[in-house]
Nucleic acid binder design. Structure first.
Length: 503
RNA sequence: GGUCCGUUCGUCUAGGGGUUAGGACACGUCCCUUUCACGGAUGAAACACGGGUUCGAUUCCCGUACGGACUACCA
């Protein structure tokens, strides 16, 4: 059971944009597969036709590929167990369900959704919950209470039915979860879940168990929301006689709201001003939910951040490339408790990875309209000051525009005789600076100021205002170098004309 | 309500019967600096509570509290 080849799967439903928690689940699956030389499968669980959303599958594939999760087998790439879309495997699930019926481990049920709802509501008003199980199934409308002939007749005339699993009574279900260790549940608390729906489609429970078995999945790594139904799944494996090859389970801690309590939702993301989808997702109604990619997150940063939400290597290393994650990862080091989603850390990672990116690469993609040399200089100027790469574009645009206004508060406090004389002096010597580069500009300026007895600190702030309009920004000398002598001359003239008017 | 899972700084977490309970993000202060940022240094900041077990419990056990997930012919 544990020495089988490692085969894991990510099995999302195509119901919309891929939640960031799903990306983490896929990532953990991928890390384990790569580390152990196994295979990563992508299976699309589209058994609920009512929730199917056009484009979701393509989106999932693109999202995984963007973060660097490569699929060895599955939708989009094919493989020996094709098809990998459950809707295309529809016919076989009924065969498996029939197997259980013939074994007496499943039965037909004719109760209508309305009848069941009514019973639920009734019991709920009394403070208890309805369960379709050993205690109630003998009183309900199913093949256990009907005669064989009656059942047959009902089916023949087309009465809608479902197939339910007959949970064995009085059994301790014990299974080992890699993250939570042994979990013990009594079979009396698990319901006779529907296996086949009346539309002929299997439910998740049947479909995933059958597929995981057929696809020889070795580890089921999924969210904690599946933990309560895991006992049912174990029972299913037993009923089919597949227990010896049952996958190992690992139920991942949930991603929680940044503040307050509960599962992380789209709402929280909107409220917190951060994305919840890896890529921008366009909803059927045309509304868009921005993605991490479009927001400016680098995939390396997202992956590193996500990997650390619920897992850590046990060392003090914070930065991990995908390859490093693959070697360091282990299911045993995953936490049990849910992790609050704090976007601050993601931004920090982004900044770190941005600093690590090459100036040239960034320049080419974020400043494509500039001559490469200049673009590289600009990138260098801004790279370490911003969180997102597109800010390089924005900051560049600001830098290269002659200031329309000047920061009045700073002008009010810094404009003095020294500043005025210093700026004028700088304007005068400007033509004499042959090689207009940062170092030369700085030397020329400080030499001149020394002659005049003006301290550099007395006028630098005002010089910055004169050139840039604002009191804060990147290295001024470098900025001037990039904009060029003529531009600086122009700005000084304008400033000397405008600034006195502000007093 | 029932079942299951969980609980170390504000957040992500390390650790684990005897520790000054460690790191990272965020925050404060200082240094660097023409400003801001980066970087460096530094500070504040945590074992939910109550019982056991033990020479000793944050660590093991049991309760309680709190939180979460699930409780669909959704996944």
């Amino acid at each position: 059971m544990s020495n089988r080849p490692v085969r894991v799967r990510f099995a999302p439903s195509p119901t919309g944009g891929l939640h960031i928690g799903g990306v983490r689940t896929a990532l953990y699956n991928y890390l384990l597969a790569k580390q152990l030389g196994g295979k990563m499968l992508l299976r699309i669980e589209d058994t609920d036709q009512t929730r199917f959303v056009e484009g979701a599958e393509e989106y999932i594939i693109e999202a995984l590929s963007w973060v660097g999760i490569t699929i060895d087998e599955g939708v989009g790439v094919g493989g020996p167990h094709a098809p990998y879309r459950q809707s295309e495997r529809k016919a076989m699930y009924m065969d498996y369900a029939m197997q259980l019926i013939n074994l007496g481990k499943a039965y037909y049920a004719f109760d209508t959704p309305e009848e069941l709802d009514a019973m639920r509501q009734n019991l709920e008003s009394e403070g208890s919950a309805f369960q379709y199980n050993a205690a109630t199934r003998t009183k309900l409308n199913n093949s256990l209470t009907l005669s064989e002939a009656e059942t047959k007749a009902k089916i023949e005339i087309g009465t809608p039915y479902v197939i339910r699993f007959k949970v064995p009574p009085k059994e301790e279900i014990r299974f080992k979860d890699i993250i939570r260790d042994w979990v013990l549940v009594h079979s009396s608390t698990v319901d006779d879940k529907v296996l086949m729906k009346s539309d002929g489609m299997p439910t998740y429970h049947l479909a995933h168990a059958v597929d995981d078995h057929l696809m020889e999945i070795s580890h089921v790594i999924r969210g904690e929301e599946w933990l309560p139904s895991a006992p049912l799944h174990v029972l299913l494996y037993r009923a089919f006689g597949w227990e010896s090859t049952m996958p190992q389970f690992a139920h991942l801690p949930l991603l929680l709201k940044p503040e307050g309590n509960g599962k992380l939702s789209k709402r929280d993301a909107d409220a917190g001003g951060f994305p919840i989808f890896p890529l921008t997702w366009t909803m059927p109604d045309g509304k868009q939910a921005i993605g991490f990619r479009e927001e400016g997150y680098l995939k390396e940063a997202l992956v590193n951040f996500l990997a650390f939400l619920g897992w850590n290597p046990g060392t003090e290393q914070e930065m991990f490339s995908m390859d490093e994650l693959i070697t360091a990862f282990s299911l045993e080091r995953i936490n049990k408790a849910g992790a609050k989603f704090d976007i601050h850390k993601a931004k920090w990672y982004n900044q770190q990875y941005l600093k690590l990116s090459s100036d040239e690469d960034l320049a080419k993609t974020y400043l494509p309209d500039y001559e490469l040399d200049k673009a590289i200089k600009l990138t260098h100027l801004f790279k370490e000051r911003v969180t997102f790469p597109q800010e390089i574009t924005q900051e560049t645009a600001k830098l290269l525009k002659i200031p329309a206004t000047y920061d009045e508060a700073t002008v009010a406090s810094k404009w003095n005789v020294d500043a005025k004389n210093g700026i004028s002096a700088f304007q005068h010597i400007l033509p004499t600076i042959e090689n207009f580069v940062a170092d030369e500009i700085k030397h020329a300026l400080s030499d001149e100021l020394e002659k005049l007895g003006i301290k550099m600190g007395k006028m630098m702030q005002m010089l910055r205002i004169a050139i840039m309009g604002t009191g804060v920004g990147p290295d001024l000398m470098l900025s001037m170098e990039i904009m060029g002598k003529d531009e600086v001359k122009l700005r000084l003239e304008k400033a000397l004309f405008e600034l006195p008017k502000l007093l």
